[in-house]
C-alpha cells in the first residue's frame, strides 16, 4: 500500500524553503526581463518554460511531491497527460481544418 514507510514524515529544512523562494523570485524577474526581448517564436517557449520550472519547484519542495508516494506523482503526471491530450486533439482539429480545400469547410479567420 504505502510506497515508502518512514515512521515519521520527512521534514524539509528551512534553508531549502528560503532557497526555493529565492529561486522563484529570480525566475519571476527573469521572465519579465525576457518578455521585453524580441526572440520571435521563442518568447512563448521561454515564458512557458520558466513558468514550468517555477511550477516544478513549488510542486517538488513546497508541496512535498519529492517525498510523496509514487502513486501521487503518477497521478499528477497522468493528469497533465490528459490535459495535454485535450490540447492535442483540440489543436489537431483546428489546425488541420482547412488543409483540405473542400468548399464550405474553410474557416476564414
Amino acid at each position: 500500500m504505502a510506497n515508502h514507510d518512514h515512521d515519521t514524515p520527512h521534514i524539509t529544512g528551512l534553508g531549502t524553503y528560503f532557497a526555493v523562494f529565492g529561486a522563484l523570485m529570480v525566475l519571476t524577474a527573469a521572465t519579465v526581463f525576457v518578455a521585453f526581448q524580441d526572440l520571435g517564436m521563442m518568447n512563448n517557449v521561454v515564458a512557458l518554460g520558466i513558468a514550468t520550472l517555477k511550477a516544478v519547484l513549488v510542486l517538488w519542495f513546497f508541496m512535498h511531491l519529492g517525498h510523496a508516494t509514487t502513486f501521487t506523482r503518477v497521478a499528477m503526471a497522468s493528469t497533465l497527460f490528459f490535459f495535454f491530450l485535450l490540447l492535442a486533439f483540440l489543436f489537431g482539429d483546428t489546425l488541420t481544418r482547412d488543409l483540405l480545400d473542400v468548399p464550405g469547410r474553410v474557416i476564414e479567420l
Binding site: G92, T94, T96, R97, L99
Partner: peptide
C-alpha cells in the same frame, strides 16, 4: 475512452484528419 470523443462530431466541420484519427 478519453481519446475518442471526436466521433460525435464527424458531421460538424471538424477536420477530416482529426475525424479519421478519432
Amino acid at each position: 475512452g478519453f481519446l475518442v470523443w471526436g466521433h460525435h462530431m464527424f458531421t460538424t466541420g471538424q477536420s477530416i484528419y482529426a475525424s479519421t484519427i478519432f
